[in-house]
Each structure stands twice: as structure tokens, then as C-alpha cells.
């Protein structure tokens, strides 16, 4: 191991630590009530304005605050924070789930493969001496999943397509500054049971939902939401985890429908774009914002299919303006006869 980290390694570790600790803002409604109550004048009926009062001891305030807090916690859960997705989001999800539940996945016969193609535009930031450049970088990920996903051999190919959409700086500027734009090619990977990475839990995860993992999920949508909340840490991460699972192409239609129903219980989830366009595939975006970024999944309302996902910056950060699409990807799944081919 090297003795010294690069700037990038330090930033990545800081970022990793930042994202690992999930803030829980649920009590903030109560805290707000405390603060506003403390700011209320103590004698509201007095008509004559007096000079600003002397600062009151914090301890007495805190005691008063605690009393208000006890009440406010109850109020908050019923009034201040929504307990489900918005009405429009719920309707969109339920309609799509109904259609998805009636869908039959094309069967994969023995010797055939489920072929999953992901076109992912991920934000890539490259640094030169005193400057950084950012672009959406198209990655093509192709996965061949055998009829028996547990015992059979999988194949995965991943490459940069060379398609780039510059967000900060231009390609010419980046190259002139000495930044490396291309990454080294990814080796083709083959692995039994899709175990491309060592050390994954045997039963699977949301990011790699094996049949055993899927069989263990609750059938009741509200319980499924609770499970998602616990596993992901809640909030926007629930949506990220659902998108992760759906993107694999491993989730059967009835569970896809259930996941959409589970999302109706996600507070703050809303329809954010009625005509989201993922390189020509159009759908309805459902999203929620947290920590300066909006996560969205894109549904095709006519098929109930999740066709992709998108992330949109919700605050100005690191030179990337608010409203910038910071990543998006679309997924298609077909059945093919031969591993490594597209038909």
C-alpha cells in the first residue's frame, strides 16, 4: 500500500464517509416548533413595543422547549411531514404496478440468456493541477444471464462509448490542462452465478437480488417499504435501492409491481417530470430531493416498466449548477440464444 494518498483519494474517502452516515431529519419538525415558540413574544397582548428584552437564560428556554417538544412530536408526525408519496405519485405508481403485475416476463429456455443492456451516463470529474472538469460519460454495460442464474455462468462487458456531454469545461480545455479523459478498458468478466465481485453476501442484496433474496421479501407493499427503509437507511436511498434492484433485470414482474406499490409509502416522493427523455425513451419521472440532489426513476406508464433513472443536481456545488442532470441511465432486457451476442 502506498504511504501517501492523492488529493482525489482523500476527497473520495471524505465523500465516502459523508455518504455512509445517513442523517435522519424526521425530528426537525419538532425542533422547528421549539424554535418558533421560543421566538414568540411572551406577552402577545401587549400593544406597546418595548426595547429588545434581555437575553433569557438558555436553560429556562430549554426547559420550556422540552415541554413544547413533547407536544410537537405528536403534531409533527400527523401534520408537518407527509407520511406517503404525493397523490399524483401514488396514482402513477399504482397504475403502473397494476400493468406490471399483469405482465408475463419472456421465459428464458435452457441454453438461452437474458441479455441486459444498460446505457449509463455517469458524471465523471477529472482533475488537473488546479482545475477540475466534469462531463457525463456514456458507459455501455452488457450482461448475459443464463437460464439458471445461480448455477450458470454469466458474462459482463463494460466499456466507455466515447460519447461525452461536457458539464464543466470543454474537452479541449481538459486535454490542454493535462487531464486524462479516457479510462483504461475494462476486462470482460465471466463468473458462475454472476459473482463478479468477491465477498458479496450469499443470499444476495438489493444491488444483486438473487432468487433467494427476492423470495425473502415481504409481499405486503407497506412491509416491503419498511424493509427497504431499514436496509437503505431511508429517504432518497429507498429510491436508489429500488432503482438498483430493477436495473439488474433479475426482478420478476410480480415483485417489480410490488416494489412500485411499496414506493407509494415513501414520504416526499413526487412526480417531477411528466416527459422525461432518456435518449429517446420517454416516461414519467418520480423523484425526491435530499442533500442537494434529486434521485428519479423513470416509468413507462403504458407498460409499467421502469425504463431508467436520473439524478439532478438540486444545489450549486463544485461548479455544477442547480438543475444539471448529473447522471442517467436506461435499461433494456431481451432474451438471446448465444452468450456474448445480441440475438
Amino acid at each position: 500500500m502506498r504511504e501517501v494518498w492523492t488529493d482525489d483519494e482523500l476527497d473520495r474517502a471524505l465523500d465516502g464517509l459523508y455518504h455512509e452516515i445517513q442523517p435522519d431529519h424526521r425530528n426537525l419538525g419538532a425542533v422547528r416548533a421549539t424554535v418558533v415558540a421560543a421566538a414568540e413574544p411572551r406577552t402577545p397582548l401587549k400593544l406597546i413595543k418595548t426595547a429588545p428584552s434581555q437575553p433569557r437564560p438558555l436553560r429556562r428556554l430549554a426547559a420550556a422547549a422540552a415541554a413544547i417538544l413533547a407536544i410537537a412530536v405528536v403534531v409533527q408526525t400527523t401534520l408537518l411531514s407527509p407520511s406517503t408519496a404525493t397523490a399524483e405519485a401514488r396514482e402513477t405508481l399504482t397504475t403502473a404496478a397494476d400493468i406490471a403485475a399483469r405482465t408475463t416476463d419472456p421465459p428464458v429456455a435452457n441454453g438461452q440468456y437474458r441479455y441486459v443492456t444498460t446505457h449509463a451516463w455517469w458524471m465523471k470529474t477529472i482533475g488537473a493541477e488546479n482545475n477540475s472538469f466534469s462531463f457525463l460519460n456514456e458507459n455501455l454495460i452488457e450482461t448475459w444471464i443464463p437460464a439458471d442464474p445461480v448455477a450458470g455462468e454469466w458474462l459482463q462487458r463494460r466499456r466507455e462509448t466515447g460519447n461525452r456531454k461536457w458539464v464543466k469545461g470543454t474537452e479541449a480545455e481538459a486535454r490542454a490542462a493535462g487531464a486524462v479523459v479516457e479510462e483504461s478498458p475494462w476486462p470482460e468478466q465471466r463468473a458462475k452465478g454472476g459473482a463478479f465481485t468477491q465477498g458479496l453476501p450469499d443470499q444476495g442484496t438489493w444491488q444483486f437480488p438473487k432468487p433467494q433474496f427476492l423470495a425473502g421479501l415481504p409481499a405486503d407493499p407497506e412491509q416491503l417499504y419498511e424493509r427497504l427503509r431499514t436496509d437503505s437507511g431511508g429517504g432518497k436511498q429507498v429510491l436508489v435501492y429500488v432503482a438498483d434492484a430493477l436495473r439488474t433485470g433479475l426482478v420478476p414482474a410480480h415483485i417489480r409491481a410490488n416494489l412500485l406499490r411499496a414506493l407509494t409509502h415513501l414520504p416526499g416522493l413526487d412526480v417531477t417530470d411528466n416527459a422525461a427523455d432518456l435518449d429517446g425513451r420517454k416516461g414519467v419521472a418520480l423523484g425526491m430531493s435530499e442533500d442537494g440532489e434529486r434521485q428519479e426513476i423513470i416509468l413507462d406508464p403504458t407498460t409499467g416498466e421502469v425504463i431508467g433513472e436520473r439524478k439532478v443536481s438540486d444545489s450549486m456545488f463544485a461548479g455544477i449548477p442547480k438543475g444539471t442532470v448529473t447522471s442517467y441511465s436506461s435499461v433494456t432486457t431481451t432474451v438471446v440464444d448465444t452468450i456474448g451476442t445480441t440475438r
Binding site: R12, D15, K124, T125, S134, F317, A318
Partner: peptide, 12 residues
């Protein structure tokens, strides 16, 4: 391979 912007400090 990072999929999100590196959190470099905002400009001063």
C-alpha cells in the same frame, strides 16, 4: 471510476 462529482471544495 467515480459516478458522481468529486467533492472538491467550492471556489473561494
Amino acid at each position: 471510476m467515480t459516478a458522481r462529482p468529486t467533492p472538491s471544495p467550492p471556489p473561494d
